[in-house]
Write a protein that binds this DNA or RNA. Structure first.
Lengths: 103, 103
DNA sequence: TTTACATATCGATGTTCTTCGACATATCAT
DNA sequence: ATGATATGTCGAAGAACATCGATATGTAAA
């Protein structure tokens, strides 16, 4: 076994932490699954189909954004979200490779 | 946008939920990163290098096991854990494919 | 500049998760 | 049987998270 329990967690995994936490919540999964290829959705659209209050949706969107899963752009009064698709895929690639090579 | 917020979450994602939750915790990441290729570790070995109490380690191992990330086999007094490596890789593959094709 | 609208933040409350030590169970050796 | 060892489970205490309505901020239209 490795003896690195107290060591720094590999950078690959540190970036993953927030992604894993974000994707572990069912509401946040549902939000992510709303997106079709190329979609940009604003908070109102997402809140409209959600079962949660607007402020709760906002909270979950913040977590998804801070995890890097969504990118947000404010245009006028609205904030448009889109999936950070390629980055998200590369993150899963990295973790797959780490598991393949080091475990 | 899709209109499926209240629908059933795809099976791919339901299986992932527990994996994401399990890997979102730093202690559980550290446990996973202890394993070298082919390693089988018992609870005592893991608890010995951990900063947590034995019962807390047991708790985290249960979560990792129930997520499918670790497999456990009891031999005599000891319980040996190993990474469910191929299954874990296939899970990441599935999610990558889903993101590639449907978002 | 007033009003209306979209979104974010705040503060309170309830819920879930983490952690621990104590105890229970299971297995082996004496 | 008794004692020693490995692990799991329980219950309590505290920490972290989710949720909501109310309020604040920022933007555009009237």
């Amino acid at each position: 076994m490795k003896q690195n329990y107290k060591d720094t967690i590999p950078e690959t995994w540190r970036a993953m932490s927030k992604v894993f936490v974000a994707l572990g919540d069912e509401h946040r999964q549902r939000i992510l699954l709303l997106f079709e290829p190329g979609d940009r959705l604003n908070v109102g659209q997402i809140a409209a189909v959600s079962t949660l209050a607007r402020s709760s949706v906002s909270h979950h969107l913040k977590i998804l954004r801070e995890a890097g899963i969504l990118r947000a752009e404010k245009i006028g009064k609205e904030v448009w979200f889109e999936i950070n698709r390629d980055w998200l895929l590369s993150v899963f690639d990295n973790v797959s490779n780490y598991i393949r090579e080091s475990t």
